[in-house]
Simulated assay, not measured.
Amino acid sequence: MIIVCQRLLKNTKISAITLFPLIILRKQELRQNKILINHEKIHLRQQLELLIIFFYLWYVIEYYYWFFKLKNHHLAYQSISFEMEAYAMENDLNYLEKRKFWSFWKCTLGI
């Protein structure tokens, strides 16, 4: 399900966020952005694979690992294995049809 919640993301640089089972968008027109929606759908699949709660735990742990190692918020975010997979495959609109279980694992480096 996709919802638009301008108040939630209003004062952030975030265009969208996936909080299972929702994809929350900052602006209505982002519903038409197939690449962004595909990116967020990849996160939905990752969340399901890790039974949702373990996705969030892993995400936070990995973020802080990279943040303390790199001392940079943006680089830490980009280094999270879930984000690496989603960004690498967001342009392939058929990716989820052929994606293998735990494909984000290939992107996990250093942990």
Rank of each mutant, 00 (worst) to 15 (best):
K98F: 08
V4M: 03
E62A: 11
N72H: 10
H74S: 12
W58V: 09
R45S: 10
Q46F: 05
R31K: 15
L22P: 02
C107L: 07
I37K: 08
W102Q: 14
F54P: 01
G110H: 06
T18Q: 09
I14G: 13
R7E: 03
L8P: 10
S15T: 02
Y64P: 12
I2N: 07
Y77E: 13
F55Y: 13
R31Y: 00
F55K: 15
M1L: 08
C107F: 06
R26H: 10
L44A: 09
T12N: 07
R45I: 08
Y95M: 02
I42F: 05
S79F: 00
R99C: 11
T12R: 06
A16E: 03
A88V: 01
R45W: 04
I80E: 06
A16G: 12
I23P: 01
E97I: 07
N38M: 02
K98R: 14
D92H: 03
D92K: 02
L50V: 04
S79P: 00
L8Y: 04
Q78T: 00
I14C: 12
E62D: 12
H73C: 06
F54Y: 12
V4A: 01
L70P: 02
I61E: 04
K69A: 12
F68W: 12
L70Q: 11
M89I: 00
N72Y: 00
I52L: 08
C5N: 15
K41E: 09
Q6E: 10
R99V: 10
F104D: 05
S81M: 12
W102A: 15
L51D: 06
R7D: 04
S103Q: 08
N94D: 14
K106W: 00
V4H: 02
I80H: 03
N91C: 04
F101N: 10
M89G: 01
L51Y: 11
I52Q: 09
T12D: 05
T12Q: 06
R26C: 04
N94T: 13
S103H: 03
E85W: 00
T108L: 14
T108G: 05
I2M: 07
L57E: 01
H43V: 00
Y77W: 11
F104P: 00
D92P: 02
M1Q: 08
Y63D: 15
Y95P: 01
Q46M: 10
H39D: 01
E62G: 08
I52G: 13
M84D: 01
F104E: 04
F67Y: 12
L57R: 15
I17C: 08
I37S: 09
T18I: 07
R7C: 10
F55L: 13
Q32V: 00
Y63I: 11
N33H: 00
E83H: 08
L9H: 05
G110M: 09
E40D: 09
Y65H: 11
L44N: 07
T108W: 04
L44W: 11
I14R: 07
A88S: 12
E62L: 12
G110Q: 10
L109W: 01
I53C: 12
R26N: 09
W102V: 15
M89L: 05
T108C: 11
N38W: 01
M1H: 04
E90Y: 09
L51S: 14
I37E: 04
E29N: 11
W58Y: 14
M84Y: 02
E83V: 01
L75Y: 11
Q32F: 02
I23A: 01
C107H: 10
N11F: 10
T108K: 07
I42M: 04
K100R: 13
W58S: 15
K41R: 14
R99Q: 11
F54T: 02
K41W: 04
K106T: 05
